[in-house]
Design a protein around this nucleic acid. Structure first.
Lengths: 241, 241
DNA sequence: GTCTATACATAGATAGAC
DNA sequence: GTCTATCTATGTATAGAC
């Protein structure tokens, strides 16, 4: 199992990913041109950056629902009237943030895995990429998790689909590796579940790891090593799980 | 490592714990007698059950902040005026729910561990007890996690202290077992963190496990087996984590 | 103890001046 | 494109009848 190709530090990942807030907002603008009243792209992008940063910051503190649009005005520096030129309602703002995030996760993960040959290589790559990405977009990941339950039925379905999508990536890799005999996972479904749990802990408890000076590389290393233990060792133990 | 004493199924735990909503509300009433206007204990307890059930249900769907007191009236069957005889404001309602939950977790965990002799026994017991308890009080655990960020500074500190308290229990048990040479955990701090992450997954994603027919006993077994792999095996591998 | 009716503040959203 | 002023709905909270 050669994993050397995977070991990339966070800074390199950051440069390679090129996911600045401006890039993201430009993409959002182009995707939603019909619903946004502003016509000059550069003006729109500049203000969208302000709006999304302010929204993520306020929501992290008190939740999206509890954030009033007046607070959003103060934090973003725009007026009420201006805000409504960028979205037709609070719902649309929520919607855009969630959708764009999902698009990014899907794209980045799939591209990363495609470069790998072995199942173990793909698995470690997926783990590390997910953790680095959630570090880069920590506020969005946190937001996305916390607001998922407050959605309308349609959007809730989309959120659940997204949760299951990433989990499925890990499940598939576990089963693929089982077939290859690269490793032997006794219970791939539950293993994929706790993999997700470990990945989520990084962005849900960011404050904790910051306080303890745990770097993102350390956390990724630890998770990968933990998974290695589980998928390499369980096969020798009882099989009735 | 004899773990036989720990293997208790959920139904037995449930009976032993005797944590009916009524019991909990009675305790809440007694703790807050000075702040609750109702003087007849039985009347108060009966309505507190309605209020808390309604609050947990509505909050699970849309969040505590987004839940209006009018909705709470409908769901609980009480009127606005009546509600305000039980708490002096929405904040107090939030406060009571969080505090009472913490008290229960602390008490149940500590009592369970006290019965065990070995570190591994205590550890598996703590894991199983936590998972069973979070199954029994799933709505409260979910609520508590989701609302933690929406609190005033003081309450936020209390929430963080509570999060770290349970984590500390696991950390202490890991280090105790290291000293005893019952096992060897390379990185107890990070190990305790991901233990918490796995425990939280059970009540944060209850819908997922329900859909897949994973029982609470199965999940507890899986988590314990996973931890066994990590703490028994890591010691043979690289130590630079 | 519980209800209905109501006060008062703040929310989201829009109109129209600039 | 952006601002200020304002509309209407809804929120929390209270008063007073029963």
């Amino acid at each position: 199992m050669n994993t050397v190709s995977q070991i990339e530090d966070f800074e390199r990942f950051k440069k390679r990913a090129a996911l600045s807030m401006e890039e993201i907002c430009r993409e959002i603008y182009r995707e939603n041109r019909d619903r946004i009243r502003i016509k000059k792209e550069n003006v729109a992008v500049k203000n969208l950056v302000k709006i999304f940063n302010a929204t993520l910051a306020l929501s992290a503190r008190k939740g999206f629902q509890a954030m009033s649009l007046r607070e959003l005005c103060n934090e973003s520096g725009l007026s009420m009237g201006a805000l409504y030129a960028y979205f037709i309602g609070k719902d649309m703002l929520l919607d855009i943030i969630l959708m764009q995030g999902r698009r990014i996760v899907k794209k980045v993960l799939e591209e990363a895995i495609a470069l790998e040959k072995t199942s173990w290589g793909k698995l470690t790559c997926a783990l590390r990429t997910h953790i680095y990405l959630s570090e880069l977009l920590q506020e969005w990941f946190f937001f996305s998790f916390m607001e998922a339950k407050n959605l309308s039925r349609d959007r809730q379905k989309a959120a659940i689909a997204s949760e299951l999508f990433t989990e499925k990536i890990f499940l598939d890799l576990l089963e693929e590796g089982n077939k290859n005999r690269e490793y032997a996972v006794v219970n791939p479904v539950l293993t994929a579940s706790i993999i997700k749990a470990m990945l989520q802990d990084w962005y849900l408890k960011r404050w904790k790891y910051r306080k303890r000076n745990v770097s993102v590389e350390q956390y990724a290393d630890f998770v990968i090593e933990t998974i290695r233990c589980i998928i390499a060792v369980v096969k020798k133990k009882n099989r009735n799980l």
